[in-house]
Design a protein around this nucleic acid. Structure first.
Length: 458
RNA sequence: GUGGUUGUAGCUCAGUUGGUUAGAGCGCCUGAUUGUGGUUCAGGAAGUCGUGGGUUCAAAUCCCAUCUUCCACCCCA
């Protein structure tokens, strides 16, 4: 016998966990649909060349590759094998991979189906993705992403709409968050006025760590890009700006910086018309690693717990040009469902009445009772009651113990007396009380109990 | 990918400087109770000590490798 196990970083889910996860997904999906986004799905596997080169070298390392079928060794790159070049050899025996995120497959989808969809195209997608990352807190090799994007429009109306969607979902989940907003053009402006335009990516990676490693370390690392300490400190003060006005003076010689300010002002002209429950703050230090963002960027942090970001997104000017379609701007955000789950679990924010237990379980003593229970159960199911029949008659203790362990709210006992009188001995498993109820009244009796007592909430 | 950490019964964990037959609690099964669960009592089943090597008269215990867990870094949701 083999010991059962799972590959690292991936998980099973118990019924109660599935229920909680569904609660999160359903909440998110409901809001997506309300804002007129529609669902699409893309396959688990993509061609490897669709995925490679889109996430940087690090991303390529983290792609799960699927080995070719058939006599793949014959066609493999023997030279790469001899040289011990894993990456090159792998690509010679693997032409497919598991999707790494939902955005790149979406870009591929938009290009392939451009004649079948109308723009602006508002889509959402809730599906698992896979990364061969080393697992740790809030980080798994298989996890769900919940993406909403709109492609085919440059309107900053959508930025406002997406921030509102964040606010609405997290309000619904009763999580207090801070939604950070910035614009890549602000960062480009900072790079420009600091003489770092050629090291833009490196600069953003460093300043993104500001709240993690502190300003001194950031200054130190920025100087590694061959700028003076004064310039580095200048960058710190720019990304510490609290308002757009503070930046506009600094950006008087930076066209891109000014464009960033304009975009954020336009964003606000829409966004300020909306009611929001959560804090939405301008944070010039927000960078986001993904290189395809070109305009506004967003990140959501939980205010109640120490968790990394639980959502992020932004605008990209030309996501689809990789696949041969120009001038297709888009903007989108993603919800980190796994981390949201962990945060909600930690804070005890799941609703108390999420229940996986049936309303009623029939138990009985002999075959005649069992058949009657089976019949009653079918009738009650027709009327919408979630009920079940214990599969074996006989040992009452065993049946009751099962009823208790699944948390069922009522047990219906059927024995000789009940058969003779057309009743069911209805036992309330919370209170322990029981009464003989004629079968016609059973459903009503249960419904009345439900209305009168909230004792059924777990 | 780098560094650290963890693994003993279904679960949570004890297990002394290496030394008889590896323990506990919970859970599970049986009975006290042949029409009643969640309480109590009595009894019982259950472990190749992650896996593979090595050292030793002797290894859960020491050494090496490997897998896994969790954590930090890199990066990210």
């Amino acid at each position: 016998m083999m010991k059962p196990s799972l590959p690292k970083g991936i998980r099973d889910f118990l019924p109660v966990e599935v229920l909680k996860r569904k609660y999160i997904f359903d909440t998110i999906e409901k809001v997506f649909r309300k804002y007129a986004y529609i669902a699409i799905e893309t396959p688990t596997m993509e061609n490897l060349d669709t995925l490679t080169g889109k996430y940087g070298d690090e991303g390529d390392q983290l792609l799960f590759k699927v080995m070719n079928n058939g006599d793949f060794l014959r066609k493999s790159d023997a030279e790469a094998f001899k040289e011990g070049d894993s990456l090159r050899f792998a690509s010679s025996i693997s032409k497919r991979g598991l999707r790494y995120d939902l955005t790149v497959p979406f870009a591929r989808y938009v290009v392939m189906h451009q004649n079948d969809i109308s723009f602006p195209f508002k889509r959402y997608q809730i599906q698992p993705v896979w990364r061969a990352d080393r697992p740790q807190k809030g980080r798994y090799q298989e996890f769900y992403q919940c993406d909403v994007d709109v492609v085919g429009s440059e309107s900053l109306m959508y930025e406002a709409e997406l921030v509102k969607i964040y606010d609405e979902v997290f309000s619904e989940l009763r999580l207090e968050v801070e939604i950070k907003v910035n614009n890549r053009k602000i960062l480009a402006g900072i790079a420009e006025v600091s003489g770092l335009s050629d090291h833009f990516m490196e600069m953003t990676v460093i300043i993104d760590k500001l709240d993690k490693i502190g300003s001194e370390k950031v200054v130190e690392q920025l100087q590694g890009l061959h700028i003076s300490e004064d310039t580095a400190r200048g960058i710190i003060s720019l990304i510490g700006a609290k308002s757009l006005d503070e930046l506009s003076l600094a950006f008087r010689d930076s066209g891109v910086g000014q464009a960033g300010i304009e975009e954020l002002k336009t964003f606000h002209s829409y966004f300020d018309l909306l009611e929001c429950n959560n804090k939405v703050v301008f944070d010039p230090s927000l960078a986001r690693g993904l290189s395809y963002y070109t305009g506004c960027i967003f990140e959501v942090k939980s205010l109640e717990t120490e968790m990394g970001s639980i959502g992020g997104g932004g605008r990209y000017a030309d996501l689809t040009s990789n696949f041969g379609l120009k001038d297709m701007p888009g903007v989108g955000v993603s919800f980190g469902a796994e981390r949201i789950y962990d945060v909600m679990e930690e804070l005890g924010k799941f609703p108390e009445d999420l229940s996986i237990a049936p309303d009623l379980l029939f138990v009985c003593f002999d075959q005649a009772g069992h058949l009657k229970a089976f019949q009653y159960c079918a009738e009650l199911r027709e009327k919408g009651l979630v009920c079940d029949v214990y599969p074996d008659h006989g040992k009452m203790k065993k049946q009751m113990k099962y009823a208790d362990s699944i948390g069922v709210k009522y047990v219906g006992i059927i024995g000789d007396e009940e058969l003779a009188s057309g009743t069911v001995m209805l036992k309330n498993m919370r209170s322990g009380e029981q009464d003989a109820v004629i079968i016609e009244d059973l459903l009503m009796k249960i419904r009345m109990d439900y209305l009168n007592a909230d004792s059924f909430k777990i």
